[in-house]
């Protein structure tokens, strides 16, 4: 990551303007999807503008939406840099696991959208009712209050 030429340097070596901070990135180290991912997280906080200073490089300019000190602009760019690193790692992990994800997503989709029979659905519902307290935290109402056969329990409705 390098600063643009021709202006005062920020503490972190980015180029500082009166209301903006700029730097450029090497696309071979930071894939464009990671750059976009980081930009997206910043577009509600500042104005983001991208340029192509040279083949394989992306210029990033972050402009504050309100007056900002050089320290604040530095901090903004520092945060962007951290996010960019995280995005780069996510991107790589996403690529290296793409086949795994394709497999389980397709399998889950098949299972979740297969047309169920009414009996299947009823069995599912039954099992959910049995699991009504999946974490076994609640003392059952029946245990606390006798037989619990109140006809007014919504779960005891017909059907």
């Amino acid at each position: 990551m390098s600063a643009e030429e021709g202006a005062a340097q920020s503490r972190l070596g980015f180029q500082l303007g009166p209301d903006h901070i700029s730097f450029d990135l090497d696309e071979s180290a930071y894939p464009i999807d990671a750059v976009y991912g980081a930009c997206y997280l910043f577009i509600d906080r500042c104005y983001v503008y991208l340029t192509r200073p040279a083949e394989g490089r992306v210029g990033v300019r972050l402009t504050a939406q309100e007056a900002a000190s050089p320290e604040a602009l530095d901090a903004l760019a520092g945060e962007f840099a951290n996010e960019l690193l995280a995005q780069t790692l996510r991107n790589k992990l996403s690529q290296s696991t793409s086949r795994i994800r394709e497999y389980y997503t397709a399998a889950a989709l098949r299972a979740a959208t297969s047309a169920p029979s009414v009996d299947d659905l009823l069995a599912e519902l039954e099992s959910e009712e049995l699991l009504e307290d999946p974490l076994e935290i609640m003392v059952p109402w029946e245990e606390k209050h006798g037989d619990g056969q109140s006809s007014t329990d919504p779960d005891s409705k017909d059907g």
């Binding site: 990551m1 390098s2 600063a3 030429e5 021709g6 340097q9 972190l12 070596g13 980015f14 730097f23 180290a29 840099a81 951290n82 960019l84 690193l85 780069t88 790692l89 996510r90 790589k92 992990l93 996403s94 690529q95 290296s96 696991t97 795994i100 994800r101």
Partner: peptide, 22 residues
């Protein structure tokens, strides 16, 4: 003017042995 660089320390990523997570 000399080019100034700010390095981001890239954490190693073991792409061969990880499942997918966020």
């Amino acid at each position: 003017m000399a080019e100034q660089s700010v390095e981001i320390q890239t954490t190693a990523l073991d792409t061969d042995n990880l499942g997918f997570f966020r």
